[in-house]
Nucleic acid binder design. Structure first.
Length: 113
DNA sequence: CATCTGACGACCG
DNA sequence: GCGGTCGCCAGAT
């Protein structure tokens, strides 16, 4: 399955901001929910400038296993994200609200759904 | 085709 | 806060 949609979305996350797997799944309406978003990131190709480290678990937790977790933490801290513990960071202070991709013209304002 | 395995998250004790 | 259960589903074995 093409995870391109996921990667494209992840690429829009600003520096120092973080979104959860659930947010990604919700924004893209991924079939399997948050877990599917996780699989997409797990298969994330490296060396393509995808800020995979800006996606974490709900509540601001790193769910990835070591040694990757340490790398993610390092990357996030380098962007100013404050960690309360090795695997927990202050999500409320760094969460990024994904723009609801509603492509509607200003006229007609068709209702959602 | 049958199972197992997760970079999830909501719930519950 | 911590650990267990459950629903979820694409790949790997």
């Amino acid at each position: 399955m093409g995870w391109e949609r996921v990667y494209n979305l992840v690429r829009t996350i600003p520096r120092g901001r973080v979104v959860t797997y659930g947010q990604v799944a919700s924004a893209l309406r991924l079939k399997g929910g948050a877990r599917t978003a996780g699989r997409a990131l797990a298969a994330c190709p490296s060396g393509r400038g995808i800020p995979w480290h800006r996606v974490a678990g709900a509540g601001g937790r790193l769910l990835i296993r070591e040694p990757q977790a340490s790398l993610q933490r390092k990357l996030l801290e380098s962007e100013g994200v404050f960690f309360l513990s090795p695997l927990r960071f202050d999500l409320t202070a760094h969460s990024f609200r994904i723009a609801t991709a509603k492509k509607r013209s200003s006229k007609h304002r068709p209702r959602r759904h």
